[in-house]
């Protein structure tokens, strides 16, 4: 849309206008000075990951990533301001310092990690791309989609995976590309496309928005690896560590059974791993070296909860999406979520 092009131009103008400031100037200092974390989230609203609820409060797994960082820095998870971004705007917004961190269901890929001047700090959701089709088509596998029209959002890894998948399977397709997710949703709903493709987690969330959710089914094939995670600007190692370890702290908390409810009791735990996590004991301080306080992780767990709690609340059984943990279970339970130790 025009306003977005305008926004992109503006972002470009920021590069032109800003004096030659070194990119490594401390993001943490900036954040502390202004009193909040400016976090880029999904502007269209992706239920379960980043979307405002009925009361206008942002909720979701990605939103919790922002809240965790705010809790670590300020001891208060509500000190976040959100910037809704389209897929197209997100990286430019981060590059141009419009936001301090990006948590917008963004896939970590080599080119993004190496060529955009940004760094992914971890994976808060292991996803994969899938297809949704109308039941009436009688299709049961993505391999049956030869010749189909496929609605897809522009500027996503999805757009490229879609092309690769059809090509490698010797099938043809016609991509109908929309700039915004809402527009792609509406076009699929109106019957413009036979299939809709995005990350599987997104498909479940988008299916619920259709006029008749039961008319559509999600096909079983997962055609790509989509490790979604937060990203920060390159060149600020301290800030990168804070965002990275905010996620790890939530994982470690889940691993050792520290929850939002019992975090105060856990302070008296004898487990040295838990003591190091919560900053309990003489000389146990892993927060100060990265510019935080010794109870940084305590604040995260107290304010946001551990990873498992966040997952269940936003996308798991406690949410309308009801997505199983699957790859996102802890490594101790057969999943891929694994945090290095605090030591």
């Amino acid at each position: 849309m025009r306003s977005n092009t305008f926004k992109t131009l503006l972002l470009g103008a920021v590069f032109l206008g800003a004096g030659a400031v070194a990119a490594s100037a401390g993001t943490l200092d900036d954040v502390k000075a202004k009193g909040f974390v400016q976090c880029g989230v999904n502007g269209a609203g992706l239920a379960g990951f980043g979307a405002p609820d009925d009361a206008g409060n942002w909720k979701g797994l990605d939103v919790d990533a922002c809240r965790a960082v705010a809790a670590a820095v300020f001891g208060d998870p509500s000190k976040v301001k959100y910037t809704g971004l389209s897929a197209k705007e997100r990286f430019t917004a981060l590059q141009s310092k419009e936001i301090d961190m990006l948590a917008r269901n963004s896939t970590n890929t080599m080119s993004r990690d190496t060529q955009l001047g940004i760094t992914f700090t971890g994976v808060n959701y292991y996803d994969g791309q899938g297809f949704m089709v109308k039941k009436a088509l009688g299709v049961s596998s993505a391999k049956d989609l030869n010749g189909a029209s496929v609605c897809v959002q522009s500027g996503t890894t999805t757009e490229l995976n879609l092309a690769d998948y059809f090509k490698s399977n010797g099938m043809t397709f016609n991509a109908v590309v929309f700039e915004k997710q809402e527009e792609a949703d509406a076009a699929y709903d109106a019957g413009r496309c036979d299939a809709y493709t995005t990350d599987a987690s997104g498909l479940y969330s988008i299916r619920l928005k259709m006029t008749n959710p039961d008319d559509s089914i999600v096909l079983p094939e997962i055609i790509s690896k989509e490790p979604l995670g937060p990203a920060v600007r390159q060149g600020d190692d301290q800030w990168e560590s804070i965002v990275r370890w905010s996620h790890y702290a939530m994982l470690i908390a889940e691993e050792f059974g520290v929850t939002q409810a019992n975090v105060d009791e856990m302070k008296s735990s004898e487990n040295p791993e838990v003591q190091r996590l919560l900053g309990v004991g003489e000389g146990v301080d892993f927060g100060t070296p990265i510019g935080l306080t010794k109870d940084w992780a305590y604040n995260i767990i107290k304010g946001v909860g551990n990873y498992g709690e966040s997952f269940e609340r936003n996308v798991g059984e406690g949410s309308p999406l009801k997505i199983a943990r699957g790859l996102n279970a802890l490594w101790t339970k057969g999943g891929l979520q694994y945090a290095p130790p605090i030591r």
Binding site: A87, K88, S154, E159, V177
Partner: peptide, 9 residues
């Protein structure tokens, strides 16, 4: 200014 911009950055 959409797909190419996003893919190449």
């Amino acid at each position: 200014a959409g797909s190419t911009l996003n893919i190449t950055g």
